[in-house]
Design a protein around this nucleic acid. Structure first.
Lengths: 278, 278
DNA sequence: TGCGGGTTTGACGCAACGTCAAAGTCAAGC
DNA sequence: GCTTGACTTTGACGTTGCGTCAAACCCGCA
């Protein structure tokens, strides 16, 4: 029989660990001195301790290990546990790989761009959203700006504040098309069939933006100058993290557009639906 | 300004999380009502929150993220942090891969062998050990058993109990040689130059077993019958976990050999020095 | 009979929140 | 104006597997 320190040294664990396992009932000392409370371990208990350590190395929790130590029918149980664990480890393995890619792309971005631009891409999901919108094909950016402003202002006037939510622009074409095909409108706080007539014979119609499970999103200040850079940032992020674009891009105006044209204060969230690249 | 719940919903985090970040000083609400203590967040704070979340996804701790959020010179700092993190993630990635292999080999072992044999291989390190030993080449297992018993009994008689530690057998040849070249002796609790004369003109000489950083070890009951199985278990474990054997194998008798020949009560630890396979 | 090193119980700490509980607040409907 | 239900506040405890410390006790050796 060894005292706790000797046994700990033999098994290369800490005394605290042995006391903890005793407390959990995983490994009771072979004998405890009734007078002093000293724990005494027999070398015969080493295999059991080794079983615990081996299972722990496989990633099982102490709570899971307990039942497996019984001599009973634990073979099938153990197999089941391990199969579960395998799936879990595979998942976390992939997560770690993704993290590594994220880190590397971030480092590369710093090296390329000199410093961090404050472009923080994060992945989120979005719910289906009722929408009052206008479809239009614009020839150039000036026209886009005019149309957005028209929808923004007339919509703000004509849709009740309680119903109206945020201004959203959806890019309906691939980004490299000749014309810019856009859907411009307001998201609503609840479904509605109202339609809104704007000045200049345009009209907002009700529809619904579908839910998206994974969106790469980026919040940028709304000055048009940085628009390109921001889009580029999301693009390279998506690429270097092994995703691909899975649907039309959205721009969500997080604040109502209030200032004069060219106003710098706007805050826009760019959203790209993504999925893991094939 | 949004109340905590709305802001949480927008950013897809929990209210608890926002409160926690407030408490840490990572993200203070834009305004706190002095009367009620209600936190109010501006949409302008979303980019900062996104920065936090993005860095958190890279695996940084909240404590590490704090200083990086200052607008100062954090570009180089961030790069340094990320480089550190990358190394760490690479390490943990390899660890996870190893764990996955361990699990799979364990499952395979169960499937092959019907059930768990209680063979739990664990990796440990050993210190350099002073040794009083005898080198001998044996023709067959019978001779091995005789020699081991001779050393065990004469050693037990002639080496002071305070100095004598455990009986150890080191396999000096590759396991497939014709003769079995062994070193048989007692480990000592402290270095000594004593030499011990045994019956039959044999003699134990002082030497030292070198330290080994990584040993694959397995404790088995000392019956010779299971010896083969145990060795096989360690072998396949080493192989399927992408290690290779890096030195002579040792057998450590954890208990003094007391019983008659063939005594079943002994407890032996098999030790194989290992290194990651090239 | 010291004394130095081991041992006991008990408690707190960690990381990043989740999950209550009790009490106070807000906004909407009547 | 009042009620009600949804929301928010602070505070506390739980999670996992021990590390670390403190105060008191114990062992074996000289």
């Amino acid at each position: 029989m060894f005292r706790i320190g000797e046994f700990a040294q033999i098994a290369q664990v800490s005394g605290r660990q042995l006391r903890f396992y005793d407390q959990l009932g995983l490994l009771r000392p072979g004998h405890i001195d009734a007078q002093t409370g000293y724990r005494y371990y027999s070398i015969r208990q080493l295999p059991r301790l080794n079983s615990i350590l081996a299972l722990k190395e496989l990633g099982l929790s102490l709570e899971q290990i307990g039942p497996l130590l019984k001599d009973d029918i634990s073979a099938a149980d153990l197999r089941a546990m391990l199969t579960l664990k395998r799936a879990e480890v595979e998942r976390s393995l992939r997560a770690e790989e993704a993290r590594l890619r994220h880190i590397e792309s971030r480092i590369a971005q710093i090296d390329r761009h000199g410093g961090t631009q404050g472009f923080d891409v994060i992945v989120k999901s979005v719910e289906p959203t009722p929408l009052l919108s206008l479809y239009c094909a614009c020839a150039d950016m000036d026209e886009v700006v005019r149309m957005v402003r028209l929808v923004a202002e007339d919509g703000a006037r004509q849709i009740r504040p309680a119903l109206r939510d945020k201004l959203i622009v959806v890019a309906r074409n691939d980004l490299d098309g000749e014309k810019l095909e856009l859907e411009i409108g307001y998201s609503l706080t609840r479904p509605s069939n109202a339609s809104v007539r704007l000045s200049g014979d345009y009209q907002l119609r009700a529809s619904e933006l579908p839910a998206v499970e994974a969106m790469a999103t980026l919040v940028r200040p709304g000055t048009n100058l940085e628009s390109h850079t921001a889009f580029g940032a999301v693009g390279t992020w998506i690429e270097s993290n092994h995703y691909e674009i899975a649907g039309p891009c959205r721009e969500v105006f997080l604040e109502p557009i209030t200032g004069p044209p060219g106003f710098e204060g706007a805050l826009v969230e760019i959203q790209f639906p993504i999925r893991p690249a094939a």
